[in-house]
Design a protein around this nucleic acid. Structure first.
Lengths: 150, 150
DNA sequence: TGCTGTACTATAGCTTGCTATGTTGTTTCG
DNA sequence: CGAAACAACATAGCAAGCTATAGTACAGCA
């Protein structure tokens, strides 16, 4: 399944097309989140905190599969924007527990609605079966790429 | 197809999963390109220039669906790294034509091999039909998101 | 011709991702 | 107990995406 002659068609390259679609999703969601004063990268962190507050920075990084310094910087901007606050863990002085502000909690329903609107637009002509199939293929591919790098 | 109760499952969200897969592709390809001294974002630009040299910055941006300032900055780094050179267009003094260095041309085969290796790993257990179906779904979704923003 | 609009490039500034490295606290084990 | 390993967080520095804006050259038209 290698390409015949040093040729390489961008439009047939999995990585290229996935990356392009990813940027389209990012642009669409970013525009909508900005209306609420929230930046794109803050949204996944909010998703985690809406599930569970009082976890550590590294736990957030682990659940999102993002590096710890990236999360640290995003949290710092979220604190600046009044979305989260940090409290020391009395039982463990090296870690810091992250909590939501009221503002952060209140954004849950409206921001999730924005994300669902984007997902809805993206899959507007997909049947439920197609959508499920698509997610399954995405996940298989992600699993393939997560295997030890070689 | 909206979610029942303010719930939002990351693992079922199209945007979330596409974004995650995109980062996995990016990490995998970045690691491989680094061995050749090339940064990830330079690769799409190289793909364009391998097809056709002597085009303008904005033409590159248009073909890749990336904003012009992003391309401008990437090209600046590529010049620094000795991959491209700029020549003024004698017939049009406002634009600049981008050309490849010998080094840039020579990287074609090895870098395409790296990209194909990543694509191959990602789709290692996919049949040709599945791969084609997957690409078709990605493209439909991209078309849906490209429709005028609302 | 000259003015207006458009196209190309550049610059500033932000966010979010990454790696690499350092600091500090906790755990483990000899 | 003390040393070594490990875990959490911070910081520095880079790449690449974005928006907004400004400057310059060209084109089209009154």
């Amino acid at each position: 399944m290698t390409t015949p002659e040093g040729e390489f068609r961008r439009d047939e390259s999995l990585g290229y097309v996935v990356n392009l679609l990813g940027r389209l999703f990012a642009r669409a969601l970013d525009q909508r989140l900005r209306r609420h004063g929230v930046a794109l990268g803050q949204f996944p962190v909010l998703l985690i905190l809406w599930e569970q507050e009082g976890i550590t920075q590294s736990e957030i990084a682990r659940r999102l599969d993002i590096e710890q310094p990236t999360v640290a910087n995003t949290l710092k901007r979220m604190e600046r924007d009044g979305l989260v606050s940090f409290g020391p863990d009395p039982g463990n002085r090296r870690q810091v527990l992250v909590g939501l502000s009221e503002k952060g909690r209140a954004l849950r329903a409206p921001l999730i609605a924005e994300a669902e609107a984007v997902n809805g637009q993206a899959s507007q002509d997909f049947s439920a079966a197609e959508r499920a199939l698509f997610i399954a293929l995405l996940r298989r591919m992600a699993a393939n790429l997560s295997e030890f790098s070689e």
